[in-house]
Nucleic acid binder design. Structure first.
Lengths: 159, 159
DNA sequence: TTTGTAATGTTATACTATTGCATTTGTTAT
DNA sequence: ATAACAAATGCAATAGTATAACATTACAAA
């Protein structure tokens, strides 16, 4: 995708998580990495809402599910999920969001609704290109651009 | 400025901080807000390096200067300095950098060197515009874009 | 000088993330 | 199969970042 998407409130999470899981399984097989039960469980928790989820939120949910775990467990799983592109880190919120798309290695831009907490994704190569070019003029070699846009989503604008 | 800048290692901090202080004084007078000694002291500390500075780094420096303070003091000053545009928050590092420029209310893009820790600024209206436009197509009304680019600066590239 | 607001002080605590080391699990080669 | 190795997990402690709640002081305008 080159345009944008923002989750609708009436979204069918059930189906959406199922799709995410299939995506994850295929991706990990192809990459030759292990999607363990724990990692999958944590991915499901993060993917079951389209809002930014903190590491300790994940822990809480796990506790309710009877899977008690230490923080480091969640952080390790998150590191893994981020490394394979199944989760994005949201620096400005110290939180995480599941990635429902395949971006390859293209950087992503996040839209964060201040009102409902929902998070959407954009994939704008033009933005990435413009950043690389401008940075390059200053002799700066770009590694990874973090682009997080706060604002108000369509649904909350209307309300 | 519309192009970019990245601090040179051989930079003259002394002069640079003096300029920052003048800038801050004028800006606060114009805005009708109080640049107290404490706020100024903290601005100087942050502005005396062109690397990302953590809140607790500031505290350490203050302690060495004999000005003991509680974390909340620093965070309050930082909130103020950010609100008037004298400091930028670097979300991806949980750190801060003094702003030596006048951006008006234009969003800024930060360049963060992984090697030396130096931080530079860009002001690229085109990037901001592209983000607003793409977000707008998804019905998203942009408030504040956070753009932080990690990479390697010219000086460190050469080395 | 009173009066109200902004700024600061003080203490405690909440929230986020990592380190170090022991143990288990899964994979590969023999 | 099983030995041997690497990856993943468990566990406990602790480091690092940020805010809450409430008391006090400093400042500016009436």
């Amino acid at each position: 995708m080159t345009s944008g998407s923002f989750p609708k409130p009436e979204h069918d999470h059930q189906r959406c998580v199922a799709r995410l899981v299939r995506h994850a399984e295929q991706l990990c097989i192809k990459a030759g990495v292990r999607l363990t039960v724990q990692r999958l469980a944590i991915l499901k928790i993060i993917g079951s809402s389209h809002k930014a989820t903190g590491a300790y939120d994940v822990l809480e949910v796990m506790a309710k599910q009877g899977q008690r775990a230490a923080p480091v467990t969640v952080y390790r799983a998150l590191d893994f999920l981020i490394s394979v592109g199944l989760v994005h880190r949201i620096s400005s919120l110290n939180a995480f969001i599941a990635c429902h798309h395949s971006h390859g290695s293209n950087p992503v831009q996040l839209l964060i609704c201040k009102a409902c907490g929902g998070v959407g994704e954009l994939e704008l190569p033009a933005v990435t290109r413009a950043l690389k070019e401008a940075a390059g003029k200053a002799g700066f070699s770009v590694d990874e651009p973090v682009v997080e846009v706060t604002g108000v989503c369509a649904h909350c604008c209307a309300a």
